[in-house]
C-alpha cells in the first residue's frame, strides 16, 4: 500500500520534534513511569520497545494527553511554531494539544453504527474547537481534511460503512485516518500491528513511513516486533520498569545482553539479509534485518 507519488501532503506543519523532560506518571499512588527524558527529532521515527508492563503505553498515553503526568512535554522546531511562542532554545512554551499530537490507540473503541467518515471526522474535534470554541461545528476545512485523509489512506470505498464492519487492516487504517485528521505534527502509535497478520503489519507501517517521508510527520511507535521496530525506526528507546534504559540506533540497542536483561529471558540477536532493495530503513545503508530469537537453553537469570 504505497502512496501514489502525487499524493498531496496531509499536513501543513513543517517538521516538528518533541522534547520530553522528566516525564513521570503516577496513577493511584503507583508510579508507572519515572523520570523519562528524550528528544524526538523532527521527522524522526523513534521506536519504543520493552517488555509488557514496562510503561511504553503509559508514556504514549501521557504524551497524548490521556493521563495526567509530571514533567514537561514541548514541541521542538528550528523554524519556530506558528502560534506558539518559543523560548531561546527553540522549545515551544505552550503545552502541545490534540492539534499537535495524535495517537493511534492499541485497542480503539469502534462505536456501533458509526460510519467511517463520521469516525474520521471526530479527529477534527480540536480544530473545530479552536476555531469556534467548545460548541463549534465542523467547517468546510474540516470536510476537506476529512475527505483528503480518506482518499490518502485509500478508504473512500468504505466511507459509508459502519466502523464495526471493517476487517482488521481496514479498521487500523480508519483509526490512523482519524489521527491524521487531527493534522498532528507528531503521531503516536501504540502497538499498531498487534492485531494484524504479517502482510497488513508491513503495509500499515509502510503507509505511516510514506506519510513521514512525504509530510514530515514525526513518529513515536511502541512496538512488540523487534524486527519491524528495527527496520522502521531511526532510533529505538528501550523502556524497562518505567524507566528509559537505552536510547540509540537499532543496531546498538538490539544487543544480546541488553535485551536479555530487559526481557528476562536469554535472547540472541541475528542479522539476516532482507533481500529487498528498497528497504524502509532509512537509517541504515545496508539491507540487513535484525532478528531477535529466544536462545535455546535455560532461562536467563536476572
Amino acid at each position: 500500500m504505497t502512496l501514489p507519488a502525487t499524493a498531496s501532503p496531509a499536513l501543513d506543519h513543517q517538521s516538528v520534534g518533541l522534547a520530553v523532560d522528566h516525564l513521570t506518571v503516577t496513577i493511584d499512588g503507583t508510579t508507572l513511569v519515572e523520570d523519562v527524558s528524550f528528544r524526538l527529532e523532527a521527522g524522526e521515527w523513534l521506536g519504543l520497545i520493552g517488555p509488557n508492563g514496562a510503561g511504553k503505553s503509559t508514556v504514549l498515553r501521557a504524551l497524548a494527553g490521556i493521563t495526567e503526568h509530571d514533567g514537561t512535554v514541548s514541541l521542538l522546531s528550528d523554524a519556530g511554531i506558528s502560534g506558539s511562542p518559543l523560548n531561546d532554545t527553540g522549545v515551544s512554551t505552550t503545552r502541545p494539544g490534540a492539534t499537535d499530537i495524535a495517537i493511534v490507540p492499541q485497542n480503539p473503541v469502534l462505536p456501533l453504527g458509526m460510519t467511517v467518515v463520521e469516525y474520521v471526522l471526530l479527529g477534527r474535534t480540536a480544530h473545530a474547537r479552536d476555531r469556534f470554541g467548545w460548541l463549534g461545528g465542523e467547517s468546510k476545512v474540516d470536510r476537506q481534511v476529512t475527505t483528503r485523509v480518506l482518499t490518502q489512506l485509500d478508504l473512500t470505498e468504505f466511507a459509508t460503512r459502519p466502523v464495526t464492519q471493517l476487517s482488521g487492516g481496514e479498521a487500523q487504517r480508519t483509526v490512523l485516518a482519524r489521527a491524521l485528521a487531527q493534522e498532528p505534527a507528531v503521531l503516536l502509535l501504540d502497538e499498531p500491528t498487534s492485531a494484524l497478520d504479517i502482510g497488513h503489519q508491513q503495509s500499515v507501517l509502510e503507509l505511516v513511513d510514506d506519510l513521514r517521508r512525504t509530510t514530515g510527520l514525526t513518529v513515536l511507535a511502541a512496538m512488540h516486533d523487534l524486527t519491524l521496530a528495527a527496520r522502521f525506526s531511526d532510533r529505538l528507546a528501550l523502556i524497562t520498569r518505567g524507566s528509559l534504559d537505552t536510547i540509540d540506533k537499532p543496531e546498538q540497542v538490539l544487543q544480546d545482553d541488553l535485551l536479555s536483561r530487559a526481557y528476562g529471558v536469554k535472547l540472541t540477536v541475528a542479522r539476516v539479509d532482507s533481500g529487498s532493495s528498497d528497504s524502509h530503513s532509512p537509517s541504515e545503508d545496508d539491507s540487513q534485518d535484525i532478528v531477535v530469537l529466544p536462545a535455546t537453553g535455560t532461562r536467563h537469570n536476572r
Binding site: A98, I103, M114, A126
Partner: peptide, 18 residues
C-alpha cells in the same frame, strides 16, 4: 457533537481534544 465524541470513550475523547 460532544456526545458523538464521547462514544469512543473518555480516553480517546481526551486524545482528540475533548
Amino acid at each position: 457533537r460532544h456526545l458523538d465524541v464521547l462514544r469512543v470513550g473518555d480516553d480517546e475523547a481526551r486524545s482528540i481534544g475533548l
